[in-house]
Nucleic acid binder design. Sequence first.
DNA 1: TTGTAGGCGTTATCAG
DNA 2: CTGATAACGCCTACAA
Lengths: 337, 337
Amino acid sequence: MDIMSTILDVAKLAGVSTATVSRVINSPEAVREETRDKVTEAMKLCKYKYNALARGFVTKQSNTIGLIIPTINNPVFAESTRGVQDYADRNNIQVLLGNTYYQYKQEEKLVETFREKQVDGLIITTTNPRGAVLKTLVDEEIPFVLLYSTVKKGPMTVVGVDNFRGGYRATEHLVKLGHRRIGMVAGRFSISDRSFHRWHGYRQCLKNNKISYDKALLIQTDYSLTGGRDAVKKLLSLKDPPTAFFCSNDFLALGAMKGARELGLQLPRDLSIVGFDDIRIASYVIPELTTIRQPAYDIGKLGADLLFQRIGGCMKPVHRMLDLSLIVRESTAGPVG
Amino acid sequence: MDIMSTILDVAKLAGVSTATVSRVINSPEAVREETRDKVTEAMKLCKYKYNALARGFVTKQSNTIGLIIPTINNPVFAESTRGVQDYADRNNIQVLLGNTYYQYKQEEKLVETFREKQVDGLIITTTNPRGAVLKTLVDEEIPFVLLYSTVKKGPMTVVGVDNFRGGYRATEHLVKLGHRRIGMVAGRFSISDRSFHRWHGYRQCLKNNKISYDKALLIQTDYSLTGGRDAVKKLLSLKDPPTAFFCSNDFLALGAMKGARELGLQLPRDLSIVGFDDIRIASYVIPELTTIRQPAYDIGKLGADLLFQRIGGCMKPVHRMLDLSLIVRESTAGPVG
DNA sequence: TTGTAGGCGTTATCAG
DNA sequence: CTGATAACGCCTACAA
């Protein structure tokens, strides 16, 4: 700890210049083997520890990126986080992680601190794709990529999914099963454009199938198990309750299943539920959850890939909407009667 | 992006010295209001952006810590990660996150890169508490704290739980219910001392209850849903199969429940299962999972707290074993017959 | 292949 | 209260 030795110490000890030491670290092939060994030896002797900060300071490359997500508690974000981490790791880049808890202020703050920390770029799952934060990033040409949002054009690079289509397909599945009274439990639109787009898909599907939209069947709530449970109970207490629910994520859906069960209903006989995400546990609950699968890991991985390209100089914005798929399992069936 | 302005630019523009600019940033009260305003104004004019890296470079404080966990996929680690992040955030410290995937080599590598990045300290959920990595950290007096392990003395600061006791209580619950043939599905001991200690608790409990230990009833496997499912199926195919299982974490337990179900068994009538962790979903599955609760968030939070104390100079090692509690839910009952 | 020397953006020490 | 100026550890022309 105390006094760390620097390349100067090593240089002295090896009887060479600091430039040479620096070379054996960064481009060993550019120095004679003999000298190299001498230096390596010296490094051991004085227990030299490389200081990546000092390097970043001069090269203006921190080899660090910032990853901003709503909350690491949600398995989807944990999965995309893993995707970026794995990819970054393979490229010797470290990642600073920050949770916004769906609060714009927090997103703002994180972006600022990460920038002060001189991150080479940012990967963001935003709370508001039209907010000033992202706009500034674009204006100042900070390399960054947006995750999960449905943005098919414009100056931002984004790796997302077609949330509208996802919402549409989930609802369509229910309609095809024969449901006409379909409720939706959604994450609050104000903090999740993803949820908002999924709702649009839901509405459009109803419309296309000539099912009138009843706003009483929509509840916006926290993206949590309890949120899902409470919402479903409320909706089920209506005079003319839904026979099926589309939940805008799997947490909500799992919570909804619990709520239905507490009401004594049995899935999928008495009620159908479809989620969104396909988190791993979705296929391990009983009944197994029908849901829309997002390729979360790949979203993270591809996001990191594109970010590095951008950092590498490619400034042309890219919009990649990855495929969603409907995974039919056991939580959905036709309505009784 | 291009050319960032520095305090020198600001200084010139405001007609003061860099020292003064630095002062308005770090101790504004130490500079006359008039000058301060002048400087603030100038900062805006040239769009000055603070460079935290440069600061760290001179102060030798990066205000960054490294957090090393097995995998962010496991909700327990996601939860403790949140604990440290929240606490760090409140203290304006950023956290670098790394997954070891239970590989010691990876742990080694992460520690090294994080140290090169000049982190102020490390928080580690280790794969091997007796390995050289931690030993070196101790020797070189690098501030760090260990999470989740059962280490009640020695030079390391650790925030853990009594995994032995946890294993004991889980097993005891089963024994009291009347089970005599109790299997264990455990994470591999070679990569998790936690699992190893839980198994010891399990054995001790059997012994104290005069139930002979049958090593055929133990399976070590990956900490995953599939691992749990496959293990249970194998164990259940024995000539004299267990009537109950203790799984060393909730993932394993959830997987085990699935496996049992695929075999046509109904819980808790045909089989009892108890897990370990109490991840959130544990109380949302059917049947709800009986498990041992670990205060994951608090472990992370307290870990960060102790780390900061240590960074602050308190070098006395601290060992905090947090309370575990048995949460009895629906996945356990007495054996039939 | 190796050395010299200047600079990166900020803080800290000392004077004034 | 403010200003000069020397670090901090490393990289990178440029020269030798």
